[in-house]
């Protein structure tokens, strides 16, 4: 069964269909959560940001131009909402309950993979802002070159170049 394209669903929402909006929410919530999580680093906060982003989108859906990529608009809202959330949030101290697990082997494995992830995150944090944004959107936001270009207002070739350079720099940082 063919899925309706985003633009058709947005048009239906603009014509009064709440059900069409539910389909868009189901389609994008997981990807958006992954994207927002990379920014806010906190699961409950990421969930809240994703909810707020969907509500903000619904309030402004009549202004969405269905000739343009809908996902770029959605990711822009999510990014802005995440950044506002970070600014408003005070740093929270949380206890990692997995660190007090009795199963030492499982704990070591968990810590190892956490270290790897931490390593990649630290490496990405060292990149210049223009490379960091592109690589985050590509790998964690799961956006295409066109979508990244629209979100960041960059030509597609620039996105490609940034991504290639970001990958090269990451390799240099991680394998030195």
């Amino acid at each position: 069964m063919n899925e309706k394209p985003d633009e058709a669903l947005v048009r239906e929402v603009q014509e009064g269909s709440i059900t069409a909006y539910e389909i868009l929410v189901k389609r994008y919530q997981q990807r958006l959560f992954a994207f927002v999580y990379r920014i806010v680093r906190d699961e409950p906060a990421a969930q809240e940001v994703v909810q707020d982003a969907f509500i903000s989108l619904y309030k402004t859906i009549d202004r969405v131009d269905t000739r343009k990529k809908f996902s770029s608009y959605l990711y822009s809202i999510a990014r802005n909402t995440a950044i506002s959330s970070l600014r408003a949030r005070k740093p929270a101290v949380s206890i990692d309950e997995s660190a007090v697990s009795v199963d030492e082997v499982a704990m070591e494995e968990r810590l190892a993979s956490q270290e790897q992830r931490e390593g990649v995150r630290r490496a990405i944090a060292k990149l210049e802002k223009k490379y960091r944004r592109v690589i985050t959107l590509y790998y964690f936001g799961d956006l295409s070159y066109e979508e990244i270009g629209e979100t960041l207002n960059l030509p597609i070739n620039t996105v490609r170049t940034h991504l290639a350079r970001a990958k090269q720099k990451l390799r240099d940082i991680l394998y030195i």
Binding site: I18, E22, Y58
Partner: peptide
């Protein structure tokens, strides 16, 4: 990455807003 389902809370807010 954790799987989330925010459809219900989002749609509840949407319905309230739309009403």
């Amino acid at each position: 990455m954790k799987t989330i389902d925010l459809t219900k809370p989002v749609m509840e807010q949407v319905v309230r807003l739309e009403r």
